[in-house]
């Protein structure tokens, strides 16, 4: 499961997800993938507060698209205002083409459709990690 040269293990990941069960599952998956720096927020407001304090610890934001209080779209808008580049992965239960195109135009870097397996999540994170390593900052 875990790559020999595990590039994703060092990633700092912020999970933004309103469902407690989904947060637990995601956290479990990330831990299994060897990622130890996992932070949890239950909605966009909490995520922004966390990013305000600990921005440097986060490499990737993984957020549910449909959430109460502040949804994924609004969270993304606020994050993009401060950082146009931080990878933002959208979790969605309805990955239809129109909403993916729309989300990408808003600045979503990557998306994963529910239900997904740990292998699918690993693949997506690997690609994001390759992107982070190749980017010229």
């Amino acid at each position: 499961m875990i790559d020999e040269a595990n590039e994703i293990a060092d990633l700092g990941i912020l999970i933004v997800e309103d469902s407690r069960e989904m947060r637990k599952i995601l956290q479990g998956m990330l831990t299994e993938l060897g990622i130890n720096q996992v932070f949890l927020a239950k909605d966009g407001v909490e995520a922004l507060l966390f990013l305000g304090d600990c921005y440097d610890m986060i490499d990737i934001v993984v957020a549910d698209w449909n959430m109460p209080n502040m949804d994924g779209s609004e969270l993304l808008r606020q994050i993009r205002g401060a950082d146009p580049d931080i990878p933002f992965m959208m979790i969605t239960g309805r990955a239809d083409k129109d909403s993916v195109v729309e989300a990408k135009s808003q600045g979503v870097s990557s998306y994963i459709a529910k239900p997904f397996s740990i292998e699918q999540l690993e693949k997506k994170l690997n690609v994001l990690s390759r992107m982070l390593n190749a980017k010229v900052m």
């Binding site: 069960e21 599952i25 239960g93 529910k114 239900p115 397996s117």
Partner: peptide
């Protein structure tokens, strides 16, 4: 399907784990 996927994610996630 949308709602269903959310539920499946939880069921499948725990089973796989």
């Amino acid at each position: 399907a949308h709602e269903y996927n959310n539920i499946l994610m939880v069921i499948g996630g725990y089973i796989q784990r």
